[in-house]
């Protein structure tokens, strides 16, 4: 059975058609990128699957159960601004663990602060961290509650291009270590080919799935390999971009 199942899903805001007839199923442990231009409704789609918005028609289900509201088993990672500025690194990671005992809380916090490479910054406030560190902090906060699905909404959009590359490598490492199902929204073609098992290419307004592309390259991926370039170019032409500057 698939982990996430989206069937015949449509969304309208007033008279605007945002999403039309989306069908997608995601396997357990799969890394899926949803790729599209700004305003194609990909964020809306992620918010519906996350339970923050109700669709106008169709359903999104997880493990066969329709999603009606947010759930701590599936955590949404915003751009870095989702970290709580009034909490330290440790306190941010512990945020979702408010029902656990102190001892267990401490174990998990230590483990995930380590995992995302923030050891040594446990007592720092977000304002003292760089953009990349804040983003890792938010990922750690999400992982700490041991969710089975992660939703990432253009998580690296605000980072510089070098940090972005490092963050992708980190995310893949964490994904392989933790075996999570990941839905990752992006408008960056390279990013989607570097990360995903499958790329869902969407069209703009109303958002529809144009094509779902298997990225059949093993990790770590060689960014100059012919297959990588070939897949990337398929997406370029699918979106209708001449691949020249």
């Amino acid at each position: 059975m698939s982990k996430v199942e989206i069937s015949n899903l449509s969304m309208r805001f007033g008279s605007t058609d945002v999403l039309r007839d989306i069908n997608l199923s995601v396997r357990e442990g799969e890394f899926v990128c949803i790729l599209g231009p700004s305003g194609c409704g990909k964020s809306t789609l992620l918010n519906i699957v996350g339970g923050f918005i109700q669709p106008s028609a169709g359903t999104a289900s997880i493990d066969g159960v329709p999603v009606t509201r947010p759930d701590p088993r599936r955590i949404f990672v915003f751009q870095e601004r989702g970290v709580f500025p009034w909490l330290t690194v440790d306190e941010n990671v512990a945020f979702g663990l408010f029902r656990l005992s102190e001892a267990e809380k401490r174990d998990r916090v230590t483990r995930y602060v380590q995992l995302v490479g923030l050891a040594g910054f446990e007592n720092a406030y977000p304002r003292e961290l760089s953009g990349g560190m804040k983003q890792r902090l938010e990922v750690a906060r999400a992982l700490a509650v041991n969710p089975d699905v992660l939703y990432l909404d253009e998580p690296f959009g605000a980072l510089d291009s070098i940090t972005r590359l490092q963050m992708r490598r980190e995310l893949l490492r964490i994904w392989q270590a933790e075996k999570k199902t990941i839905l990752f929204v992006t408008h960056d073609i390279e990013e989607s080919v570097q990360l995903a098992d499958r790329v869902v290419i969407m069209s703009a307004r109303p958002g529809r799935i144009r094509r779902i592309l298997d990225i059949d390259i093993a990790h770590p991926r060689d960014l100059s390999a012919p297959r990588y370039i070939q897949l990337r170019d398929i997406i370029f032409s699918e979106i209708g971009l001449a691949h020249q500057v």
Binding site: G50, P72, R74, I75, F76, G82, F84, F95, F98, V145
Partner: peptide, 9 residues
């Protein structure tokens, strides 16, 4: 921030 709180149940 509110949504993050809701998300964590």
């Amino acid at each position: 921030h509110l949504r993050a709180g809701e998300n964590f149940g």
